[in-house]
Structure formats: structure tokens, C-alpha cells
Amino acid sequence: MNDLIIIFTTTLMYSTPLIFVSLGGVMSEKSGIINIGLEGMMTLGAFVASWIALTTGNPWLGFLSGGFAGLLLASLHALASIYWGANQVVSGMAMNFLGGGISIFLCRIFFEGASMTPPLDLALKIPLIFNQYATVYLSFITTLIIWFIFKFTKLGLRIISAGEHPKAAISAGVKVNFYRTFGVLASGFLAGLGGGSLSIVIVSNFRPTLISGQGFIALAALIFGKWNPVGSMLACLFFGFSQALVVYIGGLENVQISSQLLSALPYVLTLVVLVSFMGKSTAPSALGQ
């Protein structure tokens, strides 16, 4: 019983950053813009969150700053891919390099040449509510809000129309570029929050290898979840669960599997999911155009 609770708690903990980032992916891709730069936005968010939390002593301020850092990076992606007609995949890749590079660069400037931040004081971490970090609840609430936006509001209807048939949207008088920009900026903000919820909640510092592919896992969850906020959240829980299994099995004394092999599990699962669901999934029709 106790073991189950441990797995449950760990699943929620590891899923939270993925859920934020994956929802970010939903916002961008529903509007028709591929955002492969989630990883970079997440990395920058993770660093800025931990930096601001350390210097101000306020974890919530750090968390929000992480979001805004992601948004700032996303604004570059929006400029390049919406207004300058750049290839969205190439621009997104550039965001990944930029996000990682800027994070380490700033880290070395502000922390005397170190490429990782010192750990956050335990008392300054995001508070626990019913034994779970507050960000866990926040991620579920965000999922609901985004689901609600797409289901019932004018904003949601217009974002989807921009991603499905921009010409139709324009003839109906919808400002497609505005809604696409909104989608991309929202995705950067959420990816930044995702990074922050990893660096100042789960671990307590930033280091260069912290994100290592989680942005891409969130992207896989988005596809697995069929570009649907609730579906993406469920997919993230699945990936979080696999991460929790890695932690749990690694902690068992009588199981002899090398930890390197074990920690490859989430990535192998991502691959399997992508290969088997990619074709059947229904992306927005004008995605990438």
C-alpha cells in the first residue's frame, strides 16, 4: 500500500512539468504553429525560475518569472515563423539551442562561473497541499481552463480556426496572425512554467542536464493526446508514471537492472508512442503552414 502511494506521488510530481509544457504545445499547435522549441523555452524557464527564487527568496515570483522568460523566447519564435515566414521547425530548433545556451551563459555570469545554481533553501520551496506540491494542482487547473477556452469561448474557436483553415478564418474577418501570436506566446509562458516547476519544485536548483529531452517528451504527449488538452494531460500522467517506475524500481534492493538502462525507459516509451500513434493522430490541418 505504502509503495502504491509512493508511486502515485512520484507520478504526479514528474507529470507536472510535462503537463505545463504539453499544454503549451497545445496552445501553439492548435493555432497552426509548430513549436519544437518547447525544450529550449522550458530550459530557460527552469533557470530563470531558480535564479529569481534564489535572489528574491519568493518561489512564486521565481515560478512566474520562469513563465515570462519562456514567453520572451517564444516571442522570437512568433516573430520568425509568423511575421518573417521562417520555417517553423528550423526556427523552433534554433529556440532550443538559444534557450539552453542563454541559460548557461546567464548562470555563469550570475553565479561566479558555475554552470549550476546553488540549491534553494527548503523553507523557500513551493508549499505542499495535502502532501502534494501546489504546482500539481495548478497544472490540473490549467488543463481545465484551456479545455474550457477551446470548448466554450470565442478565443478558442478563433485559435482553432487559425490552425485549421487560416484562409477561411481571414475571410470571416478573424485576425489570424493575432491569434497565432497569442498561441505561441501562451505556449512559451506555459513551457517556462513547466521548467520552473521542475527546477524549483522537484529538484531545488538548475543544472544544464536538468531538462534533457523533457520538452520533447511533452511534445510526444501532445501528439499522443491528439492535440487535446485533457488528452495531453493524460498522456503526461502516463509518461510521469513511467518516470516514477524508474525511480521506484531503482530503489528496490533485490532488483538488479542497471540504472542507466532503467532511466532510458521514458525515452523508449516516447519512441514507441510516437511510432504507433503518429499516423492515426489528427493534427490541425494547417499546422506548419
Binding site: T153, L155, R158, S161, E164, H165, A168, A169, V174
Partner: peptide
């Protein structure tokens, strides 16, 4: 110029959606 996954109703009102409570 119709958005294929939308319903007929959604396609007709897209761009000039009547609102209630400001955002619905």
C-alpha cells in the same frame, strides 16, 4: 472556406460570434 472539424453553426458565426457574459 470552411473549417472542416467545426460544426455548421460554428462556421457560420466564426468571426462575428454573439457573446454572453463577455467571453462565452
Amino acid at each position: 472556406r470552411l473549417v472542416r472539424p467545426f460544426s455548421v453553426l460554428q462556421n457560420i458565426i466564426l468571426g462575428i460570434e454573439p457573446k454572453k457574459w463577455g467571453f462565452l
